[in-house]
Design a protein around this nucleic acid. Structure first.
Lengths: 114, 114
DNA sequence: AGGGGTGGTTACCGATTGGATACCTTGGTA
DNA sequence: TACCAAGGTATCCAATCGGTAACCACCCCT
């Protein structure tokens, strides 16, 4: 499993432009995408999500855990977060939306400008 | 085109349970669904969306208009709202999510309870 | 003993969201 | 003339969201 890249979400401003949101808070969708390839540690998540305060990252993770999308596992003094089956099942519809966003990005920008 | 039923969203509490949101505000997704079958008037929308204050309904409509998902048409002293092509293109991914929600509703409830 | 990394928590504060309620304008109807 | 429906606005208020910054406990390493 590759390390998460710091630039993964570099220019993304999820709440202000995208017309949809995954999870109950602003960042949950990005967290889910970070977990696609396998379990990650808190400090790993902070790399691409550097612009999220630790407070909000914790809050997102707790909410995702409460909703059953993510499991928090404490193993040999390390904490890892992983998608549950339920969380994984969200990835399909999520991808449908991301594809839509790519396809209609220009139209979105046009609409916002006028 | 059939009239919208008052019970259309009867027991739905979109923000508190569904783990996704369409549009930038709480109600926009429901508004879009109301427009699926064709143009509707403000007062028509208020029937299934009776629990939304007029202020919020207006706000949702304005946001959807600004984003290019809905067009507001004033014809012979009546106002109608209709999906634009862009708005209609959202219905596909939306439906993917609604199907997901139906399939996993029980798991969602279970997760929330514990 | 001291320093650093991991995985957070807490307090504080301003901005934003959303709800309730009352009100308004225009035009039609009785 | 009075009233009514349509399509909203205006105002006020409470709750929530999200950011900054500081702090903390535990463990490891030197």
């Amino acid at each position: 499993m590759e390390a998460l890249r710091a630039e993964m979400f570099e220019e993304i401003c999820p709440s202000s432009l995208l017309p949809f949101r995954i999870g109950s808070d602003k960042w949950a969708g990005l967290v889910l995408r970070c977990l696609e390839d396998g379990p990650r540690r808190y400090s790993e998540l902070r790399v691409p999500l550097a612009r999220i305060s630790p407070k909000m990252l914790t809050q997102s993770l707790r909410a995702l855990e409460r909703d059953g999308f993510v499991s928090r596992v404490q193993d040999d003094r390390r904490v890892t977060y992983a998608l549950t089956d339920l969380g994984r099942s969200l990835l399909g519809p999520m991808r449908a939306f991301c594809d839509w966003a790519e396809d209609h990005w220009d139209e979105l920008l046009d609409a916002r400008e006028s």
